[in-house]
Design a protein around this nucleic acid. Structure first.
Lengths: 291, 291
DNA sequence: GTTCCGCATGAATCGATAG
DNA sequence: ACTATCGATTCATGCGGAA
């Protein structure tokens, strides 16, 4: 029987292959950020870039089995650079997963404004990651209304018509929140988003930007690979209340916290007992806050 | 001998293979938006998605030959959707070009804020395109200082201290430009950009500098539509004044106009005589304006 | 209760050095 | 030649302490 709202400690390759614990066709959404090649060497035995596809394909096979026919799989990944070149293991994975039966429905672009700093002679900072959307069928479930955003055009037009004097006066004044006010006003009309996902802090630099969330990727001591807004967005988009969300590399529990806050069930798998513990702590902390 | 500031009319497969007209190692930057699979069927003989790679590889081979050792190739592409699925010809092309000797240095993301409208049950509007950056060597030429951008943090801090009253007063005022003011103030400090390219201009389908282009683009559904800001950015980034820029699918001449405006030489190839004519018209129109 | 200022810190990458 | 480690680079963000 599928146990919900639980985090299994172990290697997801083994855990997922337990057909009693994980019956087929029971999960509505799988969302995860797999350990990149060359990362987390200690825990996953150092997956070499060349072997990444071979390592992941059995896992995606189990995910295919576990997913409901009209469910979705979202993989957050970005190939890293080696010898001055982007590696190819992610695009190779796409091709391999299609052969496995997956439909590569879409590639969402997560635009990370707070990307890792640095300067190099041959490239700029990497500020975007792929969110690969795979499905089993073309008529998968999608709840677009759940992620509508305030219309961006509104603020653009208002700001453009702001006088220079008013602008300067505004700049020199000091008190209260600016961002929230705009957000409230902008809530009046909503439109559908597009396939570039941006999470921003509540304050903005460009008047035309109207999607605002915190960009926090850090949870006290432990770092999460994506901010909670990322799973939140996809969970809203591909599931409804009471559905079940699976993250086979759940880390410190970001996906679980997001699912729980949205009244969805979660199932997590984590190889590191310390991370799993921290995940439970984060879930408890969230529950306490929303009470 | 390499003739510069000229647009060759013909199929670039033939034109590029002329080793007299196009000697090896003479071009500093190739930037282009190839006709996507399934588009421009009439002009290029209907390239099927499955055959796209086979069709393009001989062309990229000639581009490799023509490019200087430390030059760059930028391909603006995005796979279209067929049967509810993203097609794989672009990622297959990346793998094939690597086998050809190209280094897949980076994938820039062009974030199109004003993307083509539309609504579908299974996906949102496609608002980003790949700008694939290929090189022959790891020590290619890159002029990062040429594309520095105003710091984002400045405006954030200022806006945070704007009072509610001033905000409302500002919103109700109407005259003058807001955006420019910000730009001027923000020019004080500049930082390096990242690999997500966003242009703030409004008309992505009708570059303001392209006088004749606008109607043409709408009416005839020309596929290679990027705003002039796109080639401008990459030309600044990968070439210096006096260098030579090649676009083998130049269409109505956007790349030529950009190169000319930046004091770079251009070479264009275009299969449609009507487009080539239009390109010359656009170049003349630009020259007249800057005089 | 708020705002402001300073500071530490990241799913990074390069180039040099060492084994 | 090939891999492992280290220091330098860079900036958006959250946090803590002070006004």
């Amino acid at each position: 029987m599928l146990e919900k709202d639980k985090i299994h400690v172990g290697d997801c390759r083994q855990v997922l292959s337990d057909h009693i614990l994980f019956p087929g066709g029971t999960v509505d959404l799988v969302i995860t950020s797999p350990p990149y090649a060359d990362r987390r060497m200690h825990s996953y035995g150092g997956v070499k870039p060349a072997a990444f596809t071979d390592w992941f394909i059995p896992i995606s096979g189990e995910l295919y089995r576990v997913l409901k026919p009209r469910g979705s799989l979202v993989l957050n990944m970005k190939e890293n650079v080696k010898n001055g070149e982007r590696q190819t293991y992610v695009i190779e994975l796409i091709l391999a997963m299609r052969k496995q039966g997956w439909i590569w429905t879409e590639e969402y672009c997560w635009y990370k404004k707070n990307s890792y700093p640095g300067k190099w002679p041959n490239r700029f900072r990497d500020s975007w990651e792929r969110c690969l959307h795979f499905t089993k069928r073309r008529d998968f479930r999608m709840y677009q209304d759940a992620v509508k955003v305030p219309i961006g055009d509104w603020a653009t037009k208002r700001f453009r018509s702001m006088s220079e004097k008013d602008f300067i006066r505004s700049m020199s004044a000091t008190s209260s929140k600016f961002g929230r006010r705009v957000a409230n006003w902008a809530n009046k009309r909503k439109v559908f988003p597009h396939n570039v996902v941006v999470f921003e802090s509540e304050h903005y630099y460009e008047p035309s930007t109207m999607i605002h969330f915190a960009t926090e990727c850090k949870n006290r001591n432990h770092s999460a690979c994506f901010p909670i807004e990322l799973p939140t967005w996809f969970i809203k988009l591909f599931t409804k209340k009471g559905d079940t969300v699976l993250d086979p590399f759940i880390g410190v529990g970001t996906t679980a916290v997001a699912a729980n806050a949205l009244d969805r069930h979660f199932i997590g798998i984590e190889i590191s007992p310390a991370y799993a513990k921290e995940a439970y702590r984060n879930i408890r902390a969230m529950k306490k806050r929303t009470k």
